[in-house]
Design a protein around this nucleic acid. Structure first.
Lengths: 361, 361
DNA sequence: ACTGTTGACAGAGACGTTTCTGCAAGTGGA
DNA sequence: TCCACTTGCAGAAACGTCTCTGTCAACAGT
């Protein structure tokens, strides 16, 4: 009999603990821990034996105990900004879904899991989960949650250039000014004389920078700005704003819409006013949705590359968590991609039915 | 001086612990714990004092320690099925996004947070996070992860009726058979003579039940089935399948598409074949996307009500976690909603411009 | 004055890991 | 033979919280 029984009952409440494995394998808990984690100096025979016993007992290490001991939970937060009364809303469904997917994959590949945590969550939820770090999407000026996390020494990486002096560990964003200027130039090259903008009322970085770039461009080329704002989180307001934009006396002959649904909204509005796209109206919108490839006509879209952003954000965050970073804040710019389709070209591209290179085989 | 200093160093590694608060407030850690958690028998003065000191020190209880002690982590998993090589894909962007959003909100409202965990994650990630329960979306026949969780006594609630004898705690689903039959009847009532189906090759419950209902309906009304299958996770295959369906010699005069992008794909294919919608072809597809309200023509869609499903799933799961459930498996059916638009009506609805009730005011 | 009760706290385990330190046995060289 | 070093493992101390079980004073009832 053992001189001091290590645990009062064999497996005291269902699940087997490390002590049970140690007892069953006839070794110490140190040996079990080392064998299972690939540490220590153990012969392969012992390692195999311990693993086998652990498997037989269905042993699962307690994540809580491990986290408590090591200080690492393997969890990273994904914080989304919130609007209105619903705990949170995706302004851009496809963008968020793609970004979250890429972020999850990237995190998983490095052994981390993602926790969805709206910024305005009840405070107790935030403090009830042990996070190794957090991704924040479009943090507002002086986000109290972010400040709090930073004060606790938890790495925070932002999707979207942080406003103000938010002290994030790193951030990833597109060059929104360049993207907007590129689109405006593209539309102008296609023959647009007066380019309108469909933009939002909120003050997030994306909306602010994009609108500013538009105004700047107008000033440079000497065009009067023609734009309509609407609350981007309200799905109905977009259709109304699109209508308003095309109902103006100084109706634009080209429009860029900053938000995902703007394309279909503008198309519907154009139909109501008898405007043909692209003949009477050139259209571009910022979207990750594939529906714009099959609308009538297909609509040119700007992709912000959410997959690349999601991946980059997580990589930077985990690097910071694991101390692989330089220690200095990192700023990473992801290029956008303009997917040119019929809606922004005066001369529709030749169909592939009759290739100009010669008779088909 | 104190007779036995309670902790070797004041705050030994940055963050303040409960001991530091106790020392600073001049009480025991028991009192601190009770004061902060609203337990025990303490006068309000003490309670306030402790809370104040805790705030001043920026005390945040360790989630890991609490979890270890109480056995509850406040975390629930959201498991999504995976396809192909990417760690995971959303077959239905909008559905998943809505469902996840509702689930997150519902969880948060009850003090829980959601962890995204693809079913095929590296095993170490699964065992590295302490879950109080899990939501699984469309579990496959004998999902090893689900079995494992159930064996550990962790509640599992499924979105989608589980196939086989998967022993889930509860499940929530639509009545897919009834939904399909309703749509087919709707199309037949609108004058359809031969209704086609665009379906998937995968064996998940949704695809299986829907297809089966279609075949059953065909048999009942004496119509030859006209359907095309394609791998639903491949975004390009849908367009090809839509084309194939309309290219058949026994071309249907109405089509129901089981997946979100089918509407635009079918619309594009119809245009290629010179078919007018709804005059030559009636169209319905299952989608949560709002784009179908503004396509030309607007397309009738079936909504599976992902918000209600996400909420219901989480409520059932948390009830089970907190022991508020009956203990018996619960099966909850959420009704679907058919949003009738132009694409499935031979006579387009009268516009609101000239109401039939008489002269406008 | 004795007993029982209640209020207001303090002490001391657990919870289940990881890991630092330590010990005994074996190995090789001088 | 002795010393230094390595190998293979065991002991025990954290990690930070919650909570069961006291303890001590005050007080009421008889």
């Amino acid at each position: 009999m053992s001189r001091a029984e290590p645990s009062r009952r064999g497996s005291r409440h269902g699940r087997a603990g490390i002590r049970d494995v140690a007892a069953a394998a006839g070794v110490s808990i140190t040996t079990v821990s080392d064998a299972l984690n690939g540490k220590g100096r153990l012969p392969d025979a012992t390692r195999r034996h311990v693993r086998e016993v652990a498997d037989r007992l269905g042993y699962r290490p307690s994540a809580a105990a491990r986290t408590l001991r090591t200080g690492k939970s393997g969890l990273i937060g994904l914080t989304v900004t919130t609007y209105g009364d619903e705990p949170f809303t995706f302004t851009e469904f496809a963008y968020f879904a793609e970004m979250a997917r890429a972020a999850t994959s990237a995190a998983l590949a490095r052994g981390y899991a993602l926790v969805i945590l709206p910024a305005t969550s009840r405070h107790d939820v935030w403090s009830n989960v042990a996070l190794d770090g957090t991704v924040v999407i479009d943090p507002s000026d002086h986000d109290p949650v972010v400040s709090d996390l930073v004060r606790q020494g938890i790495p925070v990486v932002s999707d979207g250039r942080p406003a103000g002096t938010l002290p994030v560990t790193a951030w990833v964003d597109n060059d929104h000014e360049a993207a907007v200027l590129g689109i405006l130039d593209h539309l102008a090259a296609a023959g647009a004389r007066r380019i309108g903008l469909l933009t939002g009322t909120s003050t997030d970085t994306y909306t602010r920078l994009s609108t500013h770039a538009y105004l700047h461009w107008c000033e440079r080329v000497g065009q009067d700005p023609v734009y309509e704002k609407y609350p981007a989180h309200d799905p109905c307001a977009g259709a109304v704003a699109a209508d308003r934009l095309l109902a103006r006396p100084d109706r634009p002959d080209a429009v860029y819409g900053l938000f995902d649904p703007n394309g279909t909204d503008l198309l519907a509005a154009a139909r109501r006013y008898g405007l043909r796209v692209p003949d009477d109206l050139l259209l571009v919108c910022c979207s990750e949705s594939t529906v714009y490839a099959t609308t009538e006509p297909p609509i040119t879209t700007l992709s912000l590359k959410p997959r690349r952003i999601g991946t980059a954000v997580v990589q930077l965050l985990i690097d910071a968590i694991e101390g692989l970073d330089s220690g200095r804040p990192v700023e990473q710019v992801i290029p956008t991609e303009l997917i040119v389709r019929t809606s922004s070209q005066r001369r529709p591209p030749r169909t592939t039915v009759s290739p100009p290179r010669g008779p088909a085989v």
